[in-house]
Amino acid sequence: MRTLPIIPVAVLALVTLTACGSQTVSGDGAGAAGHRALTDLPYTDVRWNIESLTSEGRKTTAPAGASLHFPDGGTVQGNSGCNTFRADAGLDGDALVLGQVERTMIGCPEPAADFEETLLSVIGGRLKADLSADEKKLTLTDSGDGDTVTLTAESPTPLLGTKWTVNSLITGDVAASVPAGAEGAAHLVLGKDGTVRGNLGCNTFTGTAKVSGQKIALGRIASTKMLCDGAKGQVEAHLLKVLNGQVTFSVQHRGLTLTGPGERSLAAVAGG
């Protein structure tokens, strides 16, 4: 496993992780000189759920929400289960070559932080991509030390009927993970019957929700009346500002982003 440099954590700062021996590939869809674009390959038009990685003989199961995809001919994008990341990508012969890996810098609790560091170390270089006969499994193998990442093809998670567990609170361009003591509590389910229900981090709630295009018109939220302070109160106050009137949503793989008024947003992952 390659060793990554130690980088101070700064919320949503974009940093570059340089893996030893990695090669930089341009992100213009054409690849760098000598590298072909990732076009017409069976794994490039699929969103892949990261199942596990094996490094130095140790297999680790991926956290919920970890995913990877190739949105165009020259890049790879993904989510480690905490931070999002991207890199330029191309083909050098039969090798998949990834350039410098860039990621957001939300503070990740353990074991997600350790998984992220190992994942980015494994994929930051030359890889062999093996696709199963049914095209449902993809294995990326580090050409240098044989570390592997195992992925499974997955359709985008449906907006309606899914339990979305909040894992990030966003204000403007600044995102922060759910504070310690409130992890996993806040969630919501948008029903096919035009309702929304869930937990705000402390109190449970219900309301109406009408989906149209990429927008959701939310009616007045009714909730229980427990007094909420500390981390749970902080999460609840943020969610009440997001779930207020008309919100915009985006579903990507197993992730949901809801953006409400006043530049307040939340990110959530399916399940939890």
Results as ranks from 00 to 15, higher is better:
248 T>W: 00
13 A>N: 14
124 G>S: 15
196 V>K: 09
198 G>N: 07
92 D>I: 00
231 A>P: 14
147 D>G: 09
231 A>Y: 07
84 T>V: 11
214 Q>A: 15
130 D>A: 12
39 T>M: 08
173 D>M: 13
250 S>T: 15
51 E>W: 02
82 C>I: 10
129 A>H: 06
76 V>Q: 03
13 A>H: 10
202 C>Q: 05
151 L>Y: 06
60 T>P: 00
188 L>S: 02
213 G>P: 04
147 D>T: 09
225 K>R: 15
12 L>V: 01
127 L>P: 05
109 P>H: 10
16 T>E: 13
91 L>G: 10
167 N>Y: 12
243 L>H: 02
45 D>H: 12
238 H>K: 09
256 L>I: 06
54 T>Q: 12
78 G>T: 04
70 F>P: 04
130 D>S: 13
67 S>V: 00
152 T>R: 15
260 G>L: 09
10 A>N: 03
217 A>S: 14
41 L>N: 09
190 L>F: 13
38 L>W: 08
243 L>M: 14
50 I>Y: 03
247 V>D: 02
146 G>K: 10
110 E>V: 11
134 D>P: 03
187 H>I: 01
1 M>P: 09
177 S>D: 07
213 G>D: 06
193 D>Y: 05
272 G>R: 12
216 I>H: 06
134 D>S: 06
8 P>Y: 01
142 D>S: 13
69 H>F: 14
125 G>S: 11
258 L>Y: 06
113 A>K: 14
214 Q>V: 01
218 L>A: 12
46 V>R: 14
116 E>A: 03
257 T>D: 05
51 E>I: 12
106 I>G: 02
20 C>I: 01
156 P>Q: 07
28 D>W: 11
64 A>K: 11
251 V>I: 12
115 F>V: 06
200 L>D: 09
91 L>V: 08
234 Q>D: 08
44 T>M: 03
267 A>M: 11
162 T>R: 02
95 A>I: 01
221 I>P: 01
114 D>W: 03
165 T>C: 05
33 A>I: 10
187 H>Q: 13
14 L>N: 11
69 H>P: 00
77 Q>M: 11
265 S>Q: 10
47 R>T: 13
21 G>Q: 03
125 G>Y: 05
220 R>C: 00
16 T>K: 06
60 T>V: 15
42 P>M: 08
19 A>F: 00
73 G>F: 05
202 C>V: 08
192 K>T: 14
73 G>V: 13
163 K>I: 02
142 D>G: 01
231 A>G: 07
4 L>P: 10
48 W>I: 01
131 L>E: 12
206 T>V: 15
176 A>F: 10
246 Q>E: 15
186 A>K: 08
60 T>N: 02
133 A>T: 11
5 P>C: 07
250 S>I: 00
33 A>K: 06
28 D>M: 07
251 V>F: 00
137 K>R: 15
80 S>T: 15
100 Q>L: 04
28 D>V: 12
195 T>R: 15
256 L>C: 08
211 V>M: 05
152 T>D: 02
